[in-house]
Amino acid sequence: MLIEFICNGKEISVDVLAEMRALDLIRNELLLTGTKCGCSKGECGSCTILVDGIPECSCLLLAPKLQGKVITTIEGLEGADGELHPIQQAFLEEGAVQCGFCTPGMILSTKALLKKNPAPTVTEIEEGLSGNICRCTGYTKIIKAVQFAALKLKGSEI
């Protein structure tokens, strides 16, 4: 079936099988491999994308469900001039990235969190990122990165 949606600001029109996962569409057809697959069961959060601003596990989402939606993947964050998004910059500067496999999902969940709640408490950050597993960092620097990003953004449009 033909579906149409907006991905990272671009209009996409693509023919998909009804049973195709959004994750496979994004990775294999749109070649946006920044979205990672860690478990295929919605347990790890590596495949997080934003659908109309809401974080979703793209491994649990069927591609046809993207019809008419606005989606953001990690590739949609960097500015046209190559400038990093303040959240990306914060993750880098705070040392919140080790192997980096969970990072795209973490950053997108952070983006959704900060849009909803520009100055989250630690507990609110934990709640917001509880669907994203990281095995490397111990999370402490991820919390710091989110706080730093919140400070940098100060509720500006993200």
Binding site: L32, T33, G34, T35, T73, I74, E75, L77, E78, L84, Q88, Q89, F91, L92, E93, G95, V97, C99, G100, T103, P104, I107
Partner: peptide, 12 residues
């Protein structure tokens, strides 16, 4: 800063 960090935060 991590020398390979930029690739990782951008998904590249």
């Amino acid at each position: 800063l991590k020398v390979d960090g930029r690739e990782l935060v951008t998904g590249k």
